[in-house]
């Protein structure tokens, strides 16, 4: 199970990376404000052709493939609760790379949510 555990951690890292890369891209795009069809379409096309968003998409696909490999070795009920770690890893990466201010209150919220998700998924 060491092999599967290592791959799960790599998968969690890939999906967290995907989150912060996508977030980085959407920060560069700036907040979506004009929702008329023309500007909305232009904004959408700009977003899906942004290099950070595309890198995020690639990291997401890597996560998906790693996850398929993990599932070929391990039980879903054993592997699924590990997904709860993703929120904390993403917040850590966002605080470090995107300079997001993650205060104690937010860390506590993330901790409770991750614990809750682990309970829900572990009880499947």
């Amino acid at each position: 199970m060491i092999r599967a555990t290592v791959f799960i951690w790599i998968a969690v890292l890939a999906s967290s990376l995907s989150n912060v890369l996508t977030s980085r891209g959407m920060q560069a795009m700036g907040p979506l404000e004009d929702c008329r069809p023309g500007p909305l379409l232009r904004y959408g096309l700009g977003a899906v052709s942004n290099k950070w968003v595309l890198l995020g998409l690639m990291a997401g696909m890597a996560n998906f493939m790693l996850w398929l490999i993990v599932l070929s070795w391990a039980d879903v009920s054993w592997a699924l609760p590990m997904n709860a770690v993703e929120y904390a890893v993403t917040a850590g990466l966002a605080a470090w790379w995107l300079k997001e201010r993650v205060a104690v209150r937010r860390w506590l919220g993330i901790g409770l949510i991750s614990g809750g998700v682990a309970c829900v998924m572990g009880s499947w």
Partner: peptide, 29 residues
């Protein structure tokens, strides 16, 4: 166990929701 998980998630969401603040740097282009 699943109910306990749901209660934890709800409490965490309430805490997290209140931790919203506007981004200091609107865009890091």
């Amino acid at each position: 166990v699943r109910w306990a998980g749901i209660v934890l998630i709800a409490a965490g969401v309430a805490l997290l929701y209140g931790s919203w603040h506007n981004r200091e740097t609107p865009s890091v282009s």
